[in-house]
Design a protein around this nucleic acid. Structure first.
Lengths: 203, 203
DNA sequence: CAATGGTTTAACCTTTGAGTTAATCCGTGT
DNA sequence: ACACGGATTAACTCAAAGGTTAAACCATTG
């Protein structure tokens, strides 16, 4: 018997991810995913019993590969300002290579809330270390007082929003010019970090 | 013959908007919209010829009712800092009452880019006045240099992201407590404006 | 080499959902 | 009173999409 070399399975996962990310759960077609993977539709159901199951697998995979690798920078032990710089730079960089992932995750999360808590428990997102660090800096008087959660939300917002809002921003602010938008994102790696640090830095 | 009192038509629009916003174009069902409106499915097609047409009408309506009323604050002639305060407060307030609209607009825009340019032309979004104001303030030396478009993106991000990211933020930062999240949003009306102003204010 | 069993496929089944049709309802003008 | 015509409906059509089935394929092993 053939060893399950799982090349087919991961092949399916990759194809399914591309389609799901592009079209969303409802918009994706099993046939389309099969085509993308270069296989028969029945084989999808052989490996993943249903569209739901396939989506679940793809979503968890995308989520797990994505969110933690970014939040991990938050738990390093760099000094705060340096950490913010690295976080923003790294995050925007990763998002540039996967521009549709955030929209995908946020959209599907918004439409299937139950899914989330299961995943969170699996992955274990925990901002406590960052929160403590910010508190300590405030105590020490090196930055202006701010709710650490606010700060974190702001950091995330500054990085993610340019990607989920890209279609409208590109048209309204950049004459629909892709090249200009790309440059904007590159400048933003530094500008956004600067903007955040400026705001909390004591002067 | 009965006068077209259009109560049915706007009734359909309202119902369709609720369903579309909640489930997205692909996820919404014509039958479901008919039920929501308390009418027969064929009547949907009588008023709006197809699902696409109905969606188009709903989307434009949502977009037009939404985006400009917010950007209008940007074209007032308040001084910059005041303008930022009003913008953030007003925007978060409106979003609190329509929490699913931004996700809806961003998602559908991301999946049907052609739609956008048509609408933009109809509505006429124009940030020039704000951009000029910011440039003038920089010239006058009253704020730190910043690309006005960056500033605008930041303002939008700070307001919108807490809504599109709500599911995950609520779980990770607020123990899935709705009440706490609501308070967070309220504090944010002031905190976000402060954060932005802090960053650009010259000291 | 033939039996085994995981893998893959073509063809089929079933349900669902968008859209159509033909008939009915009912307010209005004559 | 009745004919006209827009508004509304029940019942239908048709295509697409998710899922199933039974057979074929082929690498391994005894």
């Amino acid at each position: 018997m053939k060893i399950n070399d799982s090349t087919t399975e991961s092949n399916i996962m990759e194809a399914a991810k591309r389609i799901f990310v592009l079209k969303g759960f409802e918009g994706a077609r099993m046939q389309e995913i099969a085509d993308e993977a270069g296989i028969n539709k029945a084989l999808l159901h052989y490996y993943f019993r249903s569209k739901d199951k396939l989506f679940e697998a793809v979503f968890i995979d995308a989520f797990v590969k994505f969110v933690p690798t970014i939040l991990i920078t938050l738990n390093s032990n760099s000094p705060l300002f340096r950490k913010i710089e690295v976080f923003v730079d790294h995050y925007i960089d990763v998002l540039s290579k996967n521009p549709f992932i955030p929209g995908f995750i946020l959209h599907e999360l918004g439409h299937n809330t139950e899914r989330l808590s299961k995943i969170i428990r699996t992955v274990g997102l925990n901002p406590d270390l960052f929160v403590e660090q910010v508190k300590a800096e405030i105590e020490a008087g090196s930055i202006n007082p701010i709710d650490p959660r606010d700060l974190l939300v702001n950091m995330l917002a500054m990085c993610i929003f340019p990607f989920v809002g890209k279609p409208i921003l590109k048209v309204v602010l950049f004459k629909n010019n892709e090249e200009e938008y790309h440059e904007f994102l590159n400048r933003r790696k530094i500008a956004a970090a600067q903007f955040i640090i400026n705001s909390i830095k004591k002067r």
